[in-house]
Computed example of a mutant assay.
Amino acid sequence: MRVFAFAVLIAASSLRAAQPEQVVPPFPEVHVDERCRIFTQDRPRGDQHYSKPKFRADTSICQLNGEHHTKHWEQTVEDGVVRRTRVEVREHSFILHNGTDMPVTFVVDQSLPAGWRVDSTPQPVEVANSMATFKVVAEPGQTIRLHVGERH
């Protein structure tokens, strides 16, 4: 009986060790939407009831800059056949400023209309449910320009 109990104890402890640990972001996060509004509350967890997100605008932290919308023809050659395609491109930049004395990760959510794709560098860390999510780390006092382009 003791051998069986010891084997069960070893199996249980190895199962606990095999489970991944909760990953904590290395820096505090500032969540920003596509209109440069800053989330003022945490996103709801699975065990919480839905509550309408709360935002605030602060141009000392986030500003939109250089909004461009163009339509033009692009020409490609496939198997010796010239193809012309009408392309629509929208782009803008987020100016993100870290006014704190520690590094901060800016998490920027940009919605994508149906049929559109992200066309920018850097690429988002995730695209899910028509939402592209970008992450940028800013050092204390640093201002970063994040270019976001969309193509249809």
Results as ranks from 00 to 15, higher is better:
Arg2Glu: 05
Phe4Val: 11
Ala7Phe: 08
Ala7His: 04
Ile10Pro: 01
Ala12Pro: 05
Ser14Trp: 08
Arg16Glu: 11
Arg16Pro: 07
Ala17Trp: 11
Pro20Cys: 03
Glu21Ala: 13
Gln22His: 06
Val23Asn: 00
Pro25Val: 12
Phe27Ile: 04
Glu29Lys: 09
Val30Asn: 00
Val32Tyr: 01
Ile38Arg: 01
Ile38Phe: 06
Ile38Lys: 01
Thr40Asn: 02
Gly46Gln: 02
Gln48His: 06
Ser51Met: 10
Arg56Val: 15
Thr59Gln: 08
Ser60Leu: 11
Ser60Asp: 07
Gln63Val: 13
Glu67Met: 14
His68Tyr: 12
Thr70Asn: 10
Glu78Ile: 15
Asp79Phe: 06
Thr85Lys: 10
Arg86Thr: 15
Arg86Leu: 15
Val87Thr: 10
Val87Lys: 03
Arg90Phe: 14
Arg90Asp: 10
Glu91Phe: 11
His92Val: 15
His97Gln: 06
Gly99Leu: 10
Met102Tyr: 08
Met102Gln: 10
Thr105Met: 07
Phe106Arg: 01
Val107Gly: 01
Gln110His: 08
Gly115Lys: 07
Arg117His: 14
Val118Cys: 04
Ser120Phe: 11
Val127Gly: 00
Lys135Thr: 11
Gly141His: 04
Thr143Val: 15
Arg145Ala: 12
Arg145Asp: 06
Arg145Thr: 13
His147Glu: 08
Gly149Ser: 07
